[in-house]
Computed example of a mutant assay.
Amino acid sequence: MSAARESVLSARGLVKRYGNVTAIDGADFDLFPGEVLAVVGDNGAGKSSLIKALSGALVPDAGEIRVGTERVHFRGPLDARKHGIETVYQDLALTPAQDIASNLFLGRERRLPGLRGSVLRMLDVGGMRDEAEKVLRDLGIGIRSMTQLVETLSGGQRQGIAVARAAAFGTRVVIMDEPTAALGVTESGKVLELIGRLRERGLPVVLISHNMPHVFEIADRVHVHRLGKRIAVVSPRTHTMNEVVGLLTGAVRPDDDHRLQPSNPG
């Protein structure tokens, strides 16, 4: 990577306090084009709060967030979406009683052209199903019918729908919060394949995960979060899982590790 390479999404000095508790303590962040960046940290490290700030779900008390070179002020998730940032949360935010196409376009429903859409407010059901089928096919998600109810899908298939929705509307960044946490080995592998396909399409991915084998399998870089801030950025090519665990638990001091990457890797 060039030292002058521009971040797709970055943050400097983010702070968030809840009374006497400091959830984010001067945190920095950098995501570069076409990479999978894993964010790891122990429970209570503040990584969830960091991700919520980057996705618009939390408004920081101080610091700045930039999308490309533009400084932004997210007041909610819709602001982040307008800048091309889509988030796949742990609960997936799917509606089980609706079909696949309806879930893919949830909150973004398309209406028919002309009076049928503007006056009668009729939805373009056929168009949404065709588009949903194309998105799933492009991502290699094998589901036969877009009319299938989400409640009939497996956990891995549901995760695939949530990823497909993010890929369909995320023009700049996809953030994924523990996407394999509730999945078995086979379904987890399929989700990691999906993340790889997003990277192949040039869409950078932020992966929050406690699963170190998954992190080391798919991530290009690893952002290590501890005590509310980024303490290190490492590469799976230069560090072992045990070394990363040592960093996030405090057993290893960043100052003692000369292999750590700079924030803007050269």
Rank of each mutant, 00 (worst) to 15 (best):
R75D: 04
R75F: 01
R75P: 00
R75V: 01
G76A: 07
G76Y: 09
P77E: 04
P77S: 03
L78C: 01
D79C: 05
D79E: 05
D79W: 07
D79F: 05
A80M: 04
A80V: 01
A80I: 02
R81Y: 01
R81I: 03
R81A: 09
R81P: 00
K82S: 12
K82L: 11
K82C: 05
H83Q: 10
H83C: 04
H83G: 00
G84S: 12
G84D: 11
G84N: 13
G84T: 09
G84K: 13
I85D: 12
I85F: 14
I85M: 13
I85K: 14
I85H: 13
E86P: 11
E86N: 14
V88L: 13
V88E: 11
V88H: 14
Y89E: 08
Y89K: 10
Q90K: 11
Q90N: 10
Q90C: 08
Q90W: 10
Q90P: 07
D91W: 01
D91I: 00
L92D: 03
L92E: 02
L92G: 02
A93V: 13
A93I: 09
A93C: 09
A93S: 15
L94V: 03
L94M: 10
T95P: 04
T95E: 13
T95M: 14
P96Q: 10
P96R: 06
A97M: 10
A97G: 08
Q98S: 15
D99G: 14
D99F: 06
I100Y: 02
A101H: 07
A101V: 03
A101P: 00
A101M: 02
A101S: 12
A101R: 02
S102L: 01
S102W: 03
N103T: 04
N103G: 06
N103M: 10
N103A: 07
L104F: 01
L104K: 01
L106A: 11
L106G: 04
L106V: 04
G107V: 01
G107A: 07
R108I: 03
R108Y: 08
R108D: 07
R108T: 01
E109C: 09
R110E: 10
R110G: 00
R110M: 04
R111W: 07
R111C: 06
P113V: 05
P113I: 02
P113Q: 06
P113E: 05
G114E: 08
G114H: 08
G114A: 09
G114Y: 07
L115V: 04
L115C: 00
L115Y: 00
R116Y: 01
R116S: 05
R116C: 00
R116K: 12
R116D: 00
G117N: 08
G117M: 11
S118N: 13
S118K: 12
S118Y: 03
S118V: 10
V119W: 08
V119K: 03
V119M: 11
V119H: 05
V119S: 05
V119C: 08
L120K: 09
L120T: 05
L120A: 13
L120C: 09
L120E: 06
L120M: 14
R121H: 14
M122K: 14
L123M: 13
L123S: 07
L123F: 12
L123E: 11
L123G: 09
